[in-house]
Amino acid sequence: MFIAPLSMKKERCYVNAPTFRVAFIGCGRRAHEHAIGVQDDDRCEVVGLSDISEASAEALNVAFGFQANVYTDHKDMLAKEKPDAVFICLWTPLHLPVFRDCAEAGVKAVLCEKPMSATWGECQEMGRIAEETGCQLTFSLQRRFAAGNRTVRRLIGEGHIGQVLRMDLYSPPNLLDCGIHTFDQAMSYMGETPAKWVLGGVDTTETYNWFNVPSECGAYGHLEFANGVHASLYSGSIDTWEPTEDKTKIWAGVRVIGTEGFIEAMWDGQIVGGVKYADPSWKPEMELSSMQDQMKGYVRHAIDCLASGEEPEVSHRKALRASEIIFAFYESVRRNARVELPLAGFTDSPFISMLENGQFTK
């Protein structure tokens, strides 16, 4: 039986709850995007902003009129302000240590930038801390809250394309930072079904460094989900997958093929195509939402769950499933073999280890 995920259901109203004390650690560009959601939720009282650049924290304070206290040491802020919820908007290698600091300080909820962390072991450690302390940990996979993605989940759940058979997954380069959105989108379309095995390869014609984590410039492979659905992944240059007159190209998103039709949706829920074989006149409705709307939905939902105790739509458990696929791709390259999930036997990033060992030397 298909069980509708939370974001397929009717938009919820605010949960009656007291005001929550909110703080930011990292006050750069992404903090400004999260702050849009915070400003939209009157249950959030921003009490502290922390950044090694005091000017960045002051700029965020002024831009949104928070009137929060400014710190350059996040541990000092946690001790003095005792926030209920913290936004971590930092580079990837800082996610685990700063989340640990928040959990140890008694923070009730952490809304962290994606990806989870740079290695599989660190991702698991974040999950362990969240489970052990009860700190609600979510990641900014805000595209789940796009109106179009909610529509696709509903259409699939209502059987408009029949039984799902396979998917084509598209992502810009860097599986860790971008691919996590695509894998999360795919699993959300199937009621959170996890992956079963992965066979992958990476392109190291160039290597990138995003947020102080090295990455490939492309990745290609195949995976099977636990429900038997197969998927092919295409990840590479945005120029390669940029929309053109050839409508078969999706630079970031998912094509879902079923027994009775198919639907194509971009990352942000833009439905670019849909066919029902028995009814050529059928067209899936187009619903667009801005990044601002998505961030508002993400923050509102996280605060709702903090008040109600429900598992968030973008919980650490779901981020772990998407992250596991990414590290399985890298491990498949290292083993030159198909990799079964759940992962076992390593805690590093196979890609980083291979890169440091000179395996990709031209």
Results as ranks from 00 to 15, higher is better:
214 P>R: 10
73 D>Q: 14
328 A>E: 03
103 A>N: 01
311 E>R: 12
360 F>L: 00
120 W>G: 03
141 L>M: 09
188 S>F: 14
60 L>N: 01
118 A>M: 10
249 K>W: 07
52 I>Y: 01
189 Y>E: 03
52 I>T: 10
38 V>C: 14
170 Y>T: 02
299 V>L: 12
234 Y>N: 13
60 L>P: 01
201 G>D: 08
138 T>S: 15
164 V>L: 15
24 F>E: 01
309 G>T: 10
346 F>P: 00
326 I>Y: 06
106 G>L: 11
143 R>H: 13
146 A>P: 01
107 V>W: 02
328 A>Y: 07
354 M>H: 03
162 G>S: 10
267 W>H: 15
285 E>M: 13
346 F>H: 00
303 I>Y: 09
190 M>Y: 00
101 D>M: 02
273 G>I: 04
127 G>T: 07
9 K>Y: 01
159 G>M: 06
287 E>S: 15
309 G>A: 06
130 A>K: 11
151 T>K: 15
105 A>H: 09
65 G>I: 08
107 V>T: 05
229 V>C: 11
262 F>N: 04
19 T>A: 13
94 L>R: 11
293 D>N: 13
144 R>S: 10
340 E>H: 06
141 L>I: 08
304 D>A: 05
254 V>S: 05
231 A>P: 01
328 A>M: 08
166 R>T: 04
195 A>V: 04
16 N>C: 11
142 Q>P: 04
59 A>E: 11
122 E>T: 02
265 A>I: 15
246 D>K: 07
295 M>G: 03
148 G>T: 07
258 G>T: 08
120 W>K: 00
85 A>L: 15
25 I>D: 09
258 G>C: 04
203 D>G: 00
272 V>P: 05
360 F>Y: 13
279 D>H: 11
278 A>H: 13
296 K>F: 07
292 Q>M: 10
178 C>V: 12
103 A>M: 02
69 N>I: 06
161 I>Q: 02
314 V>I: 14
98 V>D: 00
296 K>Q: 12
107 V>H: 02
30 R>M: 15
177 D>I: 14
245 E>S: 11
62 V>R: 15
1 M>L: 12
257 I>V: 14
330 Y>M: 06
292 Q>G: 14
76 D>N: 07
288 L>H: 08
328 A>H: 06
199 L>Y: 09
206 E>F: 14
337 A>N: 14
332 S>L: 08
334 R>W: 02
202 V>E: 03
86 V>R: 03
223 L>N: 01
27 C>W: 01
225 F>W: 08
236 G>A: 05
146 A>L: 11
338 R>Q: 13
85 A>Q: 04
49 L>Y: 05
237 S>V: 04
192 E>P: 02
223 L>W: 06
260 E>C: 01
320 L>F: 09
270 Q>F: 11
203 D>Y: 02
320 L>N: 08
310 E>F: 02
203 D>A: 04
187 M>C: 07
12 R>L: 12
357 N>I: 00
155 L>P: 03
177 D>S: 13
190 M>K: 03
107 V>P: 00
338 R>I: 14
189 Y>T: 07
251 W>F: 12
229 V>I: 10
71 Y>V: 06
327 F>T: 00
87 F>V: 15
278 A>M: 07
15 V>N: 06
263 I>F: 07
259 T>D: 10
118 A>H: 12
